[in-house]
Amino acid sequence: MTFRIGPRTSQIIAYIILLLMTIITIIVLFFIIGYVFKNGFAQLSLEFLTDRTREMGKEGGILPSIIGTLFVTVLAVIIATPLGVGSAVYLVEYTRGGLLRRIISFGADCLAGVPSIIFGLFGFIFFVIQLKLGWSILSGSLTLAVMIIPTIIRTSEEAIKAVPLSYREISYSLGGGKLDTIWKVVLPTSLPGILTGVILGIGRAIGETAAVIFTAGSSLGMPTSVFSSTRTLAVHFYILAREGISMEKAYGTATVLIIIILFVNFVAYRLMHRFMERYY
């Protein structure tokens, strides 16, 4: 004789299990951030944020890494944004299905799935060695730019698609050309959505380690030009933690890193949310 559980009972059991697993997941995720913050907040001080790094990170602050991260990220975004937004404009406004569109989309989708260590290898051999840019802010940001192009393409594409067709028709009926319509109607309307993509790209660039450690290097000096080597926050944190240089400083650096990234992603989320409410 087999024992069968009725549908009502199995429904209740399933519900409880699903709820428990969801709660565990959320707790784990919060625990990770909470644990870093709990140990890291004590390390934060004005001095930590504005002092040079001394004795490989055992003493002093993280100012060179903050500035290095800023340079690398800003430069990456400056390079990637026109390429990503341009691609998205072309995809939505100039292609009507067809092979060309499929090829371009496929390229973006595949590039999005490439792991960061592959970007690291590529940036190392292409930018650092072949183009002789050395370990530098420029090599790092070019590598990151390639990495975040798909994020910007995908988000901008959705945003541009969401602009109602009637907007374009009104522009054409007033005698606007295609380029004018894109420049004066489509892009301004989809701007919040496009910005979301750019900001998500910023978040990805700031948190990246494997792709920048072999392209921007890990020099602790204060960067002076785009040809200086630098150590971004994520790389500095990685080296502090892995080589056991200073756990206190590692917690402090991680806290700064997480706060920046949560803030950046939160801004991106809010922007997208407001944009979606307006056009979907």
Partner: peptide, 20 residues
């Protein structure tokens, strides 16, 4: 110009593949 830009993603992918 936009067509050229639109090939940035697939172009990068090919460049990465080639060099690796």
């Amino acid at each position: 110009l936009l067509l050229f830009i639109a090939f940035s993603a697939i172009g990068s992918l090919l460049l990465i593949t080639f060099f690796i």
